[in-house]
Design a protein around this nucleic acid. Structure first.
Length: 550
RNA sequence: GCGCCCGUAGCUCAACUGGAUAGAGCAACUCCCUUCUAAGGAGUAGGUUACAGGUUCGAGUCCUGUCGGGCGUGCCA
């Protein structure tokens, strides 16, 4: 018999069975939604199915609810009561035994608790960071990196096989300007009076790269017209720097994909060829255009400039073809709002070439504003007045950095207040979670010193309201992971963990552990231990440490 | 001009993707440390969910329009 670790799934199944009594086509049956009601008097879970069926069955919601409930077959050790309330909601209350069973389950599953098989067999590619090696990662890249990494973690926890990929471009204009900037600094360091190129990179790191070149080559590059050595050195140094920064946040990519590959293997040419065959590409003014107007855009788009150089859209399309050809069931791209206009072209390109564009999913995140001393801080990589990710982590550490990037809906602007993030106390929500975890371990250490247990904990002693609430919060963990994974919204997990920590804190204040009857100590210790486990698992997904002492 | 995103408490944000009485954290005010970590807790106050219509049993959430903010609208990436 299958176990239903997620109560929602169980209730959905139970209701679905009962719906067989109605004479409706399968495809007309609305999705069975199970929710956690806001009001505690509405029970632990509720379904609006009767309301949604009302118009289809042409009957009153309450009557439909009556019929559903009457024929509802459920296990008494899972569900205690079923009630119809309000306009026709069906409200369920969990049985105590169910909570105890689940608590045991959490302790048995341990660090695996929360994993599910919802996406079993799915191969998913998450592409993120994808910053070109022109400078240190900025806070904007930070949001990208953390979102991508956390979404990848969430997908893994729901059973998917995930690859993490970093796409970059080390050719083209940007890199040329970078090389020229390094060369200018190199010459300056050697005493020549030269200016940075227009639009050159002004950051201090350019000078460092120039100095490294002097250490290695002395003056031997001084007369060279070739900027390649400057470009290559810059790329190498900057990439090392980027990797170090990512490692600080515990981010490790599975692969780095060089845009050059889709030039070298001819896939770019193939894209253009195919589009031409389908009459979706044409030549004009010496350039090659993609008929994006066919896909609802105002203008057609240049694929190959009159200089013969492709625009970024073309390799982007080829790269996505490449991903799909590798057999991924889903490709997730994480990128900032400034790229919002480019991905419809990529999707159109895929579509035109006969690929299933619904396999590509884009997580767009809005910009990050750094607030320093109460004032917003405007940034630009080229002008070098940015706050780098490293700067940020030097100030607040990796845990806080990750947390702040994860705590908000990706689709809203994020205000990162350095002062607030640095505050080690009240204002800083990440400490609230870590503190709850540390506090539990502190108690458990004392319990271990003072008691020895041989029997299984008698969980039925957990009857206090705070204990019940804590258990109910704990068992929601797996479904919260699924919800965060499905929506690609890590902040949902944060909101949940915050609720959980707050439920624990109530328990902590209402129910002492140390000094109570031995059996009660044991039962409450089990509950505390399960809470620490869920907090640790959740923080682990977020890439945030769960210290046992603070 | 056009396209995308956003507008919720004084501030920063939630609200399980259309559900029942919109919730937290800061900030403010009143309390609580001989008690397992007070980096905490209990409470008070704070709202016409920008505005105006519409869709339906039901709207912060969906559609239309208006206003305000961000981003884009390159033969830049």
């Amino acid at each position: 018999m299958q176990r239903y670790y997620i109560m929602k799934d169980y209730l959905r199944k139970v209701i679905s069975t009962s719906l067989a009594q109605f004479d409706i086509n399968e495809e007309d049956i609305p999705e069975i939604q199970i929710e956690k009601p806001n009001q505690p008097e509405h029970g632990d879970a509720a379904s609006n199915i009767a309301l949604n069926l009302a118009s289809i069955l042409k009957n009153s919601p309450r009557k439909i609810a009556d019929q559903i409930v009457e024929s509802l077959e459920y296990e008494a050790n899972k569900i205690d009561t079923v009630e119809i309330a309000g306009p026709g909601f069906i409200n369920f209350r969990y049985a105590e035994n169910y909570l105890f069973d689940e608590l045991n389950n959490i302790l048995e599953e341990g660090e695996r608790f929360g994993k599910s098989s919802a996406l079993d067999g799915q191969r998913i590619l998450v592409e993120y960071v994808s910053a070109n090696p022109t400078g240190p990662l900025t806070v904007g890249h930070g949001r990208n990196a953390v979102l991508g990494d956390t979404i990848a973690n969430l997908l893994e926890w729901t059973g998917a096989e995930v690859d993490r990929e970093y796409y970059f471009n080390n050719a083209g204009r940007q890199m040329r300007v970078l090389g020229q900037s390094v060369k200018a600094r190199y010459l300056q360091e050697l005493g020549q009076e030269v200016d940075l190129p227009d639009d050159g990179y002004e950051g201090e790191y350019i000078r460092d790269i120039a100095k490294a070149l002097i250490d290695e080559h002395g003056e031997e590059l001084i007369d060279s017209d070739n900027i390649t050595p400057f470009k290559e050195k810059a790329e190498q140094v900057i990439f090392e720097d980027i990797q170090e920064t990512l490692q600080r946040m515990d981010i490790e990519m599975d692969a780095f994909f060089n845009e050059q590959e889709v030039y070298d293997d001819g896939s770019i040419d193939k894209v253009v060829e195919t589009l031409r065959e389908k009459d979706l590409a044409y030549d004009e003014d010496g350039a090659t255009w993609f008929k994006t107007t066919e896909f609802g855009k105002d203008k057609d788009t240049v694929l190959i400039k009159s200089s013969g150089e492709p625009t970024y859209r073309l390799p982007d399309i080829a790269y996505h073809v490449n991903k799909l050809e590798r057999g991924y069931d889903q490709c997730i791209d994480v990128f900032g709002a400034d790229h919002i206009d480019t991905y419809p072209d990529v999707l159109s390109g895929l579509d035109a070439m006969g690929y299933d564009k619904s396999k590509v999913d884009v997580v767009v995140y809005q910009f990050v504003t750094i607030v320093k001393e109460g004032k917003p801080f405007k940034m630009s990589t080229r002008k070098a007045n940015f706050v780098t990710l490293d700067d940020l982590m030097d100030e607040v550490g990796s845990d806080v950095t990750r947390f702040f990037f994860e705590m908000r809906d990706p689709n809203t602007h994020l205000e990162f207040d350095i002062a607030e993030a640095k505050e080690a106390g009240d204002k800083n929500p990440v400490f609230y979670l870590q503190y709850a975890h540390a506090r539990i371990h502190s108690i458990l250490r004392k319990v271990e010193q003072e008691y020895s247990f041989d029997a299984k904990a008698k969980l039925s002693l957990l009857t206090h309201e705070s204990e019940t609430e804590l258990m109910k919060s704990l068992i929601r963990f797996p479904e919260m992971i699924q919800s965060a994974a499905r929506s690609h919204e890590p902040h949902r997990l944060i909101n949940y963990l915050d609720d959980l920590a707050s439920a624990f804190t109530s328990f902590y204040h209402d129910c002492r552990i140390l000094g109570e009857e031995k059996e009660l100590v044991q039962a409450r210790s089990a509950l505390a231990k399960a809470t620490a486990q869920v907090l640790a698992n959740g923080l682990g997904i977020l890439g945030i440490s769960a210290p046992e002492e603070m």
